[in-house]
């Protein structure tokens, strides 16, 4: 699971123009040739800083994203749904570990990343600041939020950083079950009793706007965006991922006789693009900066888990163990 990695803070890194021009040219030539960058290769400061930020946010999104669904495990309808949801939530936490490891190869220890999550310094996908009231909300997350994540992840797995690409390839394989499981749950509700259909429709109405936020605001092309695209850190723009998702999933929602709470939503057959009402980007900013329905709750759960697990970590920590940056 993954949200677009949006923050509004400027990234603190050396300007690429101040880098050694020879090393920079070799680095860019390598990417141009379609080769991956490995941890011990020389890389520009901006490349390293942006990747750490992206991968770290991605990892936090997996951890926090497991919370709204995690609470539904005990209440999932039926034994098989419980098993599947438990397996899915375990996958999400596993994905976080894969991603923390990929970010660690760039020089930031996992512990430092977890500290930054808990202190609120680093962000996670905004969509998880909204509540999952009903089983249908959980089904929406499993199907459509994961679908959005897969669009992002498939694109990013074509990126230039070796460890991140490898982690994403594994994640994408695992996510395919999440998507099918989520769709299965939604089909069940949508083709079920009037009460089940109503529950599903209400979930779609609640989640539509956060889902449109999920891919991030329309891209303002900055100097950095160009550079990061050239370096294959950013692969698709926010609008491109949103369009892909709309194209793949809106017809599937409509197929089930469900509606989407946007009467402007339609595919323009001439341009091939989806037209929609812009979601409220002010709300998006407000929620990212802490003022959403569940921000406090999500971080409180994380903090409590950290506090309560501390004695275990202390007990198992070998005194003479020393930490080094992992290899790949």
């Amino acid at each position: 699971m993954y949200g677009g990695g949006n923050t509004f803070e400027k990234i603190k890194a050396k300007d690429p123009n101040e880098e050694d021009p020879i090393l920079l040219a070799e680095f860019e030539a390598r990417i141009e040739r379609g080769e991956k960058i490995e941890p011990t290769d020389w890389m520009p400061d901006l490349y390293r800083a942006q990747l750490i930020r992206m991968i770290e946010q991605h990892a936090h999104s997996e951890i926090i994203g497991a919370l709204p669904e995690g609470t539904w495990i005990t209440r999932a309808p039926g034994f098989k749904r419980k098993l599947a949801l438990m397996a899915k939530v375990q996958d999400e936490v596993g994905h976080a570990q894969l991603l923390y490891s990929a970010a660690e190869t760039l020089g930031k220890p996992r512990e430092a990343m977890i500290d930054d999550l808990i202190s609120g310094k680093s962000k996670y996908s905004n969509i998880f600041n909204y509540p999952a009231f009903t089983w249908a909300d959980s089904a929406f997350i499993s199907w459509l939020v994961d679908a959005g994540a897969i669009v992002n992840q498939v694109a990013n797995s074509r990126g230039s950083y070796g460890p991140y690409s490898r982690a994403l390839e594994r994640i994408c394989i695992e996510e395919s079950f999440h998507l099918k499981f989520g769709h299965h749950c939604v089909i069940h509700l949508a083709t079920g009793t009037p009460a089940q259909r109503k529950m599903m429709q209400e979930a779609i109405n609640r989640w539509w706007h956060p889902m449109m936020h999920f891919f991030g605001p329309p891209d303002k092309m900055s100097v950095h965006t160009d550079t990061l695209m050239k370096w294959k850190v950013k692969i698709l723009t926010n609008d491109e991922t949103r369009q892909q998702w709309l194209d793949m999933y809106v017809p599937k929602v409509w197929e089930l006789g469900l509606t989407i709470p946007d009467n402007k939503l339609r595919k323009n057959e001439e341009t091939g693009k989806w037209e929609y009402t812009e979601p409220d980007w002010e709300e998006f900013k407000r929620v990212i900066n802490g003022d959403g329905p569940c921000n406090k709750e999500r971080l409180a759960v994380r903090k409590t888990a950290e506090e309560r697990g501390r004695w275990v970590r202390k007990a198992i920590l070998a005194k003479d163990a020393h930490y080094v940056t992992p290899l790949a």
Partner: peptide
């Protein structure tokens, strides 16, 4: 979990000790 744990009343100040990073 909140109703059971009364989570907001727990004393939570975030990490205060140095990194308890396990080796890889």
């Amino acid at each position: 979990r909140f109703q059971r744990l009364d989570i907001f009343k727990a004393q939570i100040n975030g990490p205060t000790e140095k990194l308890d990073q396990l080796p890889t």
